[in-house]
């Protein structure tokens, strides 16, 4: 599907996306991803040729009664957190 005319992806663009996704990358990863993304995005570009079709998805609302049910206990909910404090999850500082 790649025709050699795919849009160039720069390392800077990869870093911007990685920043949005909150994933740090090494310099090697940035370089490798930039190269691979060019080819994959060229595949994605072929979707431009897709015709529009009429579709009526059979969607329905799924409702349930708003009743209190048993859930996880606080202890269970916290059982996989590596940092907790006074029964709460402890996260990193905001800024």
């Amino acid at each position: 599907m790649s025709d050699g005319n795919e849009p160039a992806v720069t390392g800077e663009e990869v870093r911007e996306v990685a920043d949005l996704a909150r994933v740090d990358l090494s310099d090697d990863e940035v370089e490798q991803f930039a190269e691979q993304f060019e080819a994959v995005l060229a595949d994605f570009e072929t979707l431009d040729e897709v015709p529009e079709v009429e579709s009526e998805p059979d969607l329905v609302n799924v409702m349930r009664a708003d009743e209190i049910e048993e859930g996880l206990t606080q202890e269970e909910a916290l059982s996989n957190a590596s940092e907790t404090e006074d029964g709460y999850f402890k996260g990193p500082r905001v800024s």
Binding site: V14, V17, A18, D19, L20, A21, R22, V23, D24, L25, E29, F33, Q36, F37, V40, L41, F44, G91, P92, R93, V94, S95
Partner: peptide
């Protein structure tokens, strides 16, 4: 570990392998 953006990015850099990162990044881009 820094602020939450920095801390999360550190955990995700180390916790995810290359294919998962690739798909998260391409999905974020799309």
């Amino acid at each position: 570990a820094g602020n939450w953006n920095e801390a999360f990015a550190t955990a995700r850099e180390e916790g995810f392998g290359p294919e998962v990162k690739r798909r998260i990044l391409l999905g974020t881009f799309a």
